[in-house]
Each structure stands twice: as C-alpha cells, then as structure tokens.
Design a protein around this nucleic acid. Structure first.
Lengths: 369, 369
DNA sequence: CCGTATTTGTTCGTATGTATT
DNA sequence: CAATACATACGAACAAATACG
C-alpha cells in the first residue's frame, strides 16, 4: 500500500472527496503533480489511470484531467457498449438502405453498435420504439421522421429524450415543433431544379406528382410552384397530383393514365416525387405507346440506382444517400461528446446541415420541338 | 485504434473470444508477448492492464496472467432487453433489405431489439462483429455468411457462440464445416430451373454467369450443369463465366461484350446469377443493337423489384425475401426458447429449412425460331 | 527447505506524437 | 503559430511473489 503511485492516488482521491475538486473541474496537470509529489510522470499517470478506471476522473487530450461527476452514476457504463439507435420509416425503401449503410459503417468502425427500428410510417410504432430507447441506455438516436408533414403525437417522447440528455438528430425531414438538429436536403430547391430544367427545355404543360404526407414532398411541390412563378408560367391546378403513402401504389398511375388519354392537351413534362415513381410512370407511358423523352420528358428525384436501370436513363436530382448517413453518424457522435462534456452548448447558430441538390442530366428529358 | 498496445490488446482479446484461452488458463508471459509482437514491456503491460480493467484477465504476481471466467458474471440480465443481432454482407444490397425488414418487423413486434452489422463481405469485419456479439449479451444471432464458398477463418468464434449457448442460424448460405441450422433456397434447383426453361425453349448455346465466391453461385452453377446433362446438351467450357464479388462490376460485362462480337456463333440464351446482373447485361445487349427476347433470351434470379423495372420484364426465379426474414426470426426465437429450456435438443432431423424455387415467366425469354 | 529462475509490480528516464487552447 | 497537456512508446532497474527442481 505504500507504493508511491498509491500515495498520489489517495491524495488525489481525498481532494475529490473533500470537495477541493468539484465535478468538471480541472485537476493539476501531470507535470504539476510530478513536482508536488516528487515522482516521475509515469507514476503520476499510473495513479491517474487507476482513478480514471474507477470513474473518479476523466482525461481529455490537450485540455487536462478533470474530476468526474459521480452524482448521476446510474449504471456500469464504463464497461457498457456504446449504442446508437436508428429509427427509419421503411427499411427496404430504396434510398434508406444506403443511408443506413453510410451510418452503420462509420459507427461500427468506431466501436458503436447500431440498433435498427422501422416504423413502417406508423406513429404507434414510433412511440413504441421511443419508449424502448428511453428505457434503455442509448447514447444517441438518428431518426427519419414518420409522416413528417402531419402533426406528431409523440412530441413528448422527444422532449423526454432531451430531458434525459440523449442526443438525437433527424434526417431527411424533421418535426417543426421540436426544432431539432437535422440533416436534410434543400428539398424545395430540388423541386425547383427539376421543374426549371423542364421549363428551360421549353415545356409549359408540366405535371407534378408529390407525396404530401411527408415534408419532403410538400417542399418539392413548393419548388415546383416557385419555378413556374419565376418563369411566369401559369399552373393548372389539375397539373398537381398529390398522394399519400397509402395511395402511392395506385393513384399516380391512374391519374397519369387519365391525363394521357386527353390527346389534344397532353402534358409534355413530368416532375416525379422520386425515381421509384418515375420508373412506375414510365411503364404507363410505354403502355400508351409514347416515348420518353421524345413525346414526354420526365425528371426523377434521388439519383438512386433505379435511375440507370432502364433503357431510359433518368434525368434526376442527386441525393447524397450514404454520405448523408455518414455525416449523420459523425454529427451524432459529436453531439454525444458534447452532451458528456458537462455544460450544454447553447446551439446558437443554425442547428442543421442542408445538402445542396444537384441536377443530373441523362436522357429522359429533351427540348420541346 | 492503430496504436501498438491496441493491436496487442485486440490480439489477446481475440484469442480469448475464439477459445484459444479458456477461463483460468495462463496466457503468455509479458516477455513472451514482447517477443511475439516486437514491442516493449511497457506496451504489453498497457494492453494487459486495459484488459484486466475490463475484466477479461487477471494478474497474479510471480505466477502469470490468466484468462478470467466471465460466464457467471453478475448481471441483471433478467431485466435486460431482449437482443437479436443480424449480420449481413451488404446492407444496401438489393435483396437483403427485404429480408431484414421481414425479420425486424417480426422481432420488434415481440419486444426484441434488432442490432445490425454489415461485413461488406470481409472476414475481418465479420470477426470484429462476432467478437462484439460474444462480448455482449445477445440472445440470438442471424447470419448471412460472408464469402460462404471459401473457407472461413472465424469458425472458432461460431464454436464459441455454441459454447456460450447463444443460438445462431444462417440464412441464404452456410458454412459447411459448422453444420449450423440454416434457412436457404434450393439454389441448385433454381439454377436448374433457369437453365431448363431456356433449353425447353430450344436454346442450346447458353451462357451462364455465376458469382462463385459464395455457395449460392456455385450451387446455381451446378444446377446449370445438371440441366444440360439431363437434356444431353454439350457444354462449352467457355459458356460458363465465373466471377467474384470484386470482379462483379467489370468482368461479366466485358466477357459478354466479347461473346457478342462473335457474330457467327452468338449465344442465344443467358442465365444470370441474379436480377441485378441481368439488368446490367441488358444494357450491354442494347448497346449491340440486339433485342431481348427476340435475339437473346435471358433469365434472372431473385424476382426482385428490378425484374419489372425495365421495358423488358425479366423471367426470373422467385426469392422469398421478406418471408425468409420472418421465418428466420421465428426460428431464432424458437431456438432461444429451447436453449433456455435446459436440456439441448439433439437436433436430430435435418437442421434446415429449404425453400423451393419457382420460375416466374415474363417476357425476357422466348422460344428459338 | 532452499535457491534460483520466472513472472508480475513499481519506478525512473527519455522521446515523439497529437489535440486543445 | 506557439505553448500546454495528454497519449504512445522505448529502455532500464530493482522489488516482490511464485513455481519448481
């Protein structure tokens, strides 16, 4: 017991216990302790190392060694695995697997474990998962909001996450009421680019298909309207076709069939909510013996693998997919670090990262004759 | 993570997890480890120190360092959440998201939490995840084997899962040496059906593209050969084109381009490893101004959404995807129940479930003139 | 039981790298 | 950019406990 490092250890521990060092307060640096106790640096490090392992102190490279806060010493976190939860709407949706991949690979390389939850766009499921996450020890949560355009009944659960100091961030969309940290695309600009591209090619009769139960769809629609206004093109209300998740399998197809039967005033351009829909509508157009892009131009959204799968390579908007996932992973780890670093950052500036959309021109669009 | 002491640490931990070191067994002495890893004693002691702190080892002065017994470790597991791990090769691969969805929805409805790991078809990653799973408290594991056709260096980890009484099952393929419970398709029959379909349509010159670093590919190839033999059709060795995961982006495309240049003896049928490849090869055929199915018939595999995405709707083999995931989830829960029910079932009968493949005929195949 | 070799424990010195302020 | 503080790594020495012939 009379080892030098043990003496140093006891001395430091005493100072913690008698309140000389308060939680989050910096203790003497290693070189100061060397002088104080007249021992080598190695000995000091041994002493501090033991105290760190026992949860009395924590070290920060470049900054110093600090007194830990043992007041909220819930569980045995020291040995616990680091856990991140990802809540998505649809696991097998064609975009989200890539986002998950980006996040999973970044996180697992850093020793985090990723748990996956899929709401199937149902608020009840979302609630169940949030309860789950609150009950357990998750270090952070990445959420793709369920039905982001309609009001969310689970707001309280998110507020509870904040209260429990569990960082979360939203991806693709976010609930307005919460003003959470979020990573999204500039959807409105995306919709604008889609539409303006067609307008610049001379199209005037442009149909827009938008899924309007998430904010992505409503914002893309806004961009569609904006492009029309900017170029002083009149919009027929019939040219906007909104649909919900439940209707997505049928309604857009039926509506397009109706529109194409009207031979005299047939639309020449189509703005699609995403590539998936574009591919489906392509089939409708083929059935009517029409050609893309000769008879009708169409623009997709997401630049998913689907864009290059058919004989018609889609003009579309680039979605950063896996980079977005990786960034989300990076940001959530930052947030975790900050939330553990004592005082909360006031989050003054814009709590968001917005990706700029980019038009990828392939051959589903063509200038009008 | 690439610090020397961390390398030593991981190496020792691996040997604990793969069973090289059993509880209470003495590990190499510090001086031996110094020689083994070519590092200083200080570094070795750092590594061992960490592992001691984490409860993997314990030291006895004068005697040595020993492997700890973690089996009867405290834990309030009874209150713990139920956890299932899923290890896949590629998260965003076009089939696997559906399988995961099936499993996730079944498991989460029953209060289990699903953790996801993606190996990117790399054995090192697989090992890392297995170590992870062994370290924590998982109730069961669903695994899509990485590079199932080549011998697996992580067998010891699977054996350790058994030793720790953690049930696991394999999906899509399995490692032969382990004889694990597994859920697969009858891949050979699938390959047979693909090929026989073309033969019955009068095709004789049929190219087969097979990814041969997983067992699915080699078995489908076997079916391809069997169909030829059954119908007494000679096989040119040049008609079989094997490729590995690493080559999949280039080799099949280049090989097909070469084959199509040979105008006098052009193949009339193509059997594809999967729909994804079929779609890619379709592009090659289009470039050569040839038509599917008029000039060339092709058969895909998996009946994924890709099969109906182009103007040519693929004839393909139906893959049960999400049902397979759900079944895997069901079975793993059964296995967990059994493993907790004291005595092990002898697993007498066939420890497997095999899905029967089914041909889906669309319009990428046509009788030869 | 003794003595010696082995093995871990403690301590010092030195040097270089990397993160923070 | 420079100074500061912790992180990693090498080398050396002696102490204390243990194993074993």
């Amino acid at each position: 017991m009379q080892t030098k490092y043990n003496i140093v250890k006891q001395a430091i521990k005493s100072q913690i216990l008698d309140g000389t060092y308060q939680p989050y307060q910096k203790i003497s640096s290693e070189s100061e302790l060397m002088k104080q106790f007249g021992v080598s640096r190695h000995t000091v490090r041994l002493a501090i190392g033991d105290l760190v392992n026992q949860g009395w102190l924590y070290r920060e490279q470049g900054a110093g060694t600090f007194c830990a806060d043992r007041s909220k010493e819930d569980n045995q976190h020291s040995v616990m695995q680091k856990n991140i939860a990802i809540i998505t709407t649809y696991i097998s949706d064609y975009i989200f697997p890539s986002i998950i991949r980006g996040a999973e690979s970044y996180l697992s390389q850093r020793g985090y474990q990723v748990s996956l939850f899929s709401t199937n766009n149902d608020h009840d499921n979302e609630r169940k998962f949030l309860e789950n996450i609150l009950t357990q020890q998750f270090d952070g949560v990445i959420i793709e909001p369920t039905k982001s355009a309609v009001s969310n009944p689970n707001i309280n659960y998110y507020l509870n996450l904040e209260r429990q100091n569990i960082p979360y961030l939203m991806i693709n969309a976010f609930y307005d009421e919460l003003e959470p940290f979020h990573i999204v695309m500039d959807e409105e600009k995306g919709g604008f680019l889609q539409t303006e591209h067609l307008i610049e090619l001379g199209h005037k009769n442009i149909i827009g298909f938008f899924k309007t139960d998430d904010t992505q769809g409503t914002k893309r629609m806004k961009g569609y309207l904006k492009a029309h206004r900017k170029h002083n093109i009149e919009i027929s209300p019939n040219n906007i076709i909104p649909y919900t998740t439940e209707e997505k399998a049928e309604k857009p197809i039926e509506e397009l069939q109706k529109l194409l039967e009207n031979t005299e005033n047939r639309p020449t351009g189509i703005v699609c909510y995403n590539d998936e829909l574009a591919i489906k509508l392509l089939d409708v157009i083929r059935e009517k013996q029409l050609k893309v892009p000769d008879d009708i131009s169409m623009v997709g959204f997401d630049d998913s693998f689907m864009a290059e799968v058919t004989e018609v390579k889609l003009t579309t908007i680039k979605h950063p997919q896996s980079e977005m996932g990786e960034l989300a992973a990076k940001v959530i780890l930052d947030m975790i670090k900050q939330s553990k670093g004592s005082k909360k950052q006031p989050m003054t500036e814009n709590d968001l990262i917005r990706f700029d959309p980019e038009l990828v021109i392939r051959n589903s669009t063509k200038a009008i004759k």
